[in-house]
């Protein structure tokens, strides 16, 4: 049995970026959830981008983890955007009946960062 695949988390300004490039095992997703919570808490990041452009399937377990990551980041006043979902994955998710809860989605990284910048602006204005 192989070990946990740690997904690297990059920091760009106030945003954390995790780009998923491997076929995720359940425990990899759980590890990512913990690592992100630690890193948001340590850095005070206001946003998280999950790049799934290399992910060829999202099942209900993985989908639920995205929702959990988003809900956890909200507790640290950070928003989560999932970017780069493949069309076949999107069609399958809808038919599966999965909604991603509070998770925002954007076509690509650039648009995801723009959404987070907008939300950070709202936060500064409060």
């Amino acid at each position: 049995m192989s070990g946990v695949e740690r997904i690297p988390i990059l920091k760009i300004g106030d945003v954390l970026l995790a780009s998923i490039q491997v076929d995720l095992q359940d425990r990899d997703v759980l590890a990512l959830q913990e690592d992100l919570a630690e890193k948001i808490s340590a850095t005070g990041a206001h946003g998280v981008v999950l790049d799934i452009s290399a992910v060829d399937i999202v099942d209900s377990f993985i989908g639920r983890m995205f929702a959990t990551i988003a809900a956890t980041s909200r507790l640290f006043d950070a928003h989560t955007v999932v970017v780069g979902m493949r069309p076949a994955v999107a069609i399958t998710l809808v038919e599966l009946g999965l909604t991603l809860g509070e998770v925002r989605t954007a076509l690509d990284l650039e648009k995801g960062l723009a959404i987070l910048a907008g939300l950070a602006g709202d936060r500064a204005a409060r």
Partner: peptide, 17 residues
């Protein structure tokens, strides 16, 4: 098709789990 592949793989992922 790519969509049908994705649907089948997703279904089998659910069932295997």
């Amino acid at each position: 098709s790519l969509v049908d592949q994705t649907k089948l793989v997703t279904a089998t992922s659910e069932l295997a789990r």
